[in-house]
Design a protein around this nucleic acid. Structure first.
Lengths: 336, 336
DNA sequence: TTGTAAGCGTTATCAT
DNA sequence: ATGATAACGCTTACAA
């Protein structure tokens, strides 16, 4: 296995020069470059990824972070339900990696419809919105959607794996012996809701149980309506599309003097901050927000460097975090 | 992310000592060892594999490619339907990247159940099988599933995006004016089939159309049975779970003197090689097999290097390749 | 345009 | 039993 200094020796240059050629820097004379290339060829030299990774610490890009009006409002507003924290955590993931790599991030909202917005940018991170503004969709800048996937658009995206999270969690509950599990969910036209819905359904049907699902919009009235329908099924467990819905359900349940978790267990999705301060604290499926931001930016950098350019969707596995709205089994055989 | 000298400082020892503890050398006093362990705990320190490998003078990896018996048989057998070519292409993707990076690949089948199989390996690529052998699941080697995803297992996987491919393609057909589209699919207990099924269903319901789906096993008889049921719905288009099923349907349709595509259009999924030589040539949704292998190995290397260690599923977008089993619209407004 | 040398985070070999 | 320090193979200021 030849190394960079074997090449350097054979080409009678310094390793720095070899490195330059390797990384196609422009400041190498044609002659030298050819010499080096020949040496590389002759030795069948392949740079070591390990050393490369170790040595690689810096990069500098300008990337645009485009957010929808809705998210902009959430970020600027006050944080009634801890939803804001969801996005700030994603942003933290982005910014952390950005800082480490000396990357400039410029935040803008969608609607400016401004081509000039894209000038001088190396890539785009996009959060929110169920479709892309034309000037963004048509630009050939590398882009990745964060916490969002738009079917049939074939744009790179980084999301959480709602199917797997729901499937895993519902399966746990079933294995504990709870068979009457209902699902209260937002509109299935949203990929996120749909995806979690499918996971719930898959787990139920796999165990020969009938899925019982109730759709609602995300208003308290809508949720109450779905909840009442759900309650008529006498569920052991209610699984909600997200923590926001779960927390509202929790309030209603408390008003109705239905004890959580003794009478009904409740599970959310997302792990927004309010879930850990509610009474009782909410058991939920944790979405890795920080990682989501981090990985999205990472993918964007790869795209910019034309590394693995084939468009892909990256979905991060979730984790079931159990708090007090659920009864933790003492051992896996336990059931009621 | 704390480093070894943070630990050393906190424990007030040298990094050499920390390293000794890390690698459980015997020549460290109990006291010191405990101090170090405490510091490690407190800082939540994890040694970097990258640096480790570098220091170990390791500039290449040994990775194991573990395949199921079924795939082994396919690879060794003769290629009646071009299914073999599916896997050889994936393998080509793996091997190309391996060669570029001086990576040794050792191929084994699942069932050897042998712990020793894992010795001396830096990571695992796994193809086929609906569950993992215990000795593999329990090993803490980095692993990635290729063309496979096992719900609730939370192991990294690289697959094709069946939902998106089906959704996109069906949407195209609907926009061309064909509204009577049926779906003949394999067992939904297989993630791949289910995923494509969901995409079909999502597209249909989005346009207010009734999904008409027919399940079959993957035998000619089963397929014929489902086909006959499907035919009773007088479809414009039949969308099959994969090319294998589609090709068998094509044969039956020819026997029944039903003209493809004039009377019924037919769409497969995968783009196996036989699809391009059938009569008529099959329109299908192309799975990027080479890229799948390539990206899987790439992901594994990242995992070994602890880059983006959070487990994720990577699903590659597909492409609708139109051949002769489908009527290509002259312009997007065209409909029948 | 090219070379020198300082990292990157470990492990291993010397000393002490 | 412990600590300095030289590798490991590369990238990249900074110097020349």
């Amino acid at each position: 296995m030849s190394k960079i200094d074997d090449v350097a020796k054979l080409a009678s240059v310094s390793i720095a020069t070899v490195s330059r050629v390797l990384n196609s820097k422009d400041n190498v004379s044609k002659k030298t470059k050819e010499k080096v290339l020949r040496a590389i060829e002759e030795l069948d030299y392949k740079p070591s990824r390990i050393a490369r990774n170790l040595a690689n610490k810096k990069n500098s890009y300008n990337i645009g972070l485009v957010i929808s009006k809705r998210i902009d409002k959430i970020l600027k507003g006050n944080d009634s339900f801890g939803i804001r924290e969801f996005y700030t955590t994603v942003l933290a993931g982005i910014e952390t990696l950005a800082k480490e790599n000396n990357i400039q991030i410029k935040m803008e909202t969608f609607d400016n419809g401004n081509r000039k917005l894209l000038e001088d940018l190396d890539g785009l991170l996009i959060m929110g919105g169920d479709r892309l503004p034309n000037f963004i969709e048509n630009s050939d800048l590398p882009k990745v959607l964060v916490d969002n996937y738009i079917p049939a658009l074939k744009v790179d995206s980084v999301i959480s794996n709602g199917f797997d999270g729901a499937y895993y969690t519902i399966k746990q509950m079933i294995l504990r012996g709870y068979k009457k599990i209902t699902h209260i969910h937002g509109p299935l036209t949203y990929w996120g809701f749909r995806n979690r819905f499918e996971g719930y359904t898959a787990a139920m049907t796999e165990f020969g149980l009938l899925p019982q699902t109730f759709e609602c919009d995300e208003t308290p009235e809508g949720i109450l309506y779905a909840l009442n329908l759900s309650l008529s099924k006498k569920p052991n467990v209610i699984f909600a599309s997200n923590d926001f819905i779960a927390l509202i359900i929790l309030n209603f349940l408390k008003k109705k003097k239905i004890h959580v978790p003794k009478e009904i267990q409740l599970i959310g999705f997302d792990d927004i901050i309010s879930s850990s301060v509610s009474e009782p604290k909410l058991s939920t499926v944790k979405v890795f927000k920080f990682e989501m931001g981090n990985i999205a930016l990472n993918r964007l950098i790869d795209l910019i460097n034309e590394k693995n350019p084939h468009p892909a969707m990256i979905s991060l596995f979730t984790t079931f975090v159990e708090r007090d709205s659920t009864i933790i089994a003492k051992n896996s055989d336990q059931a009621i």
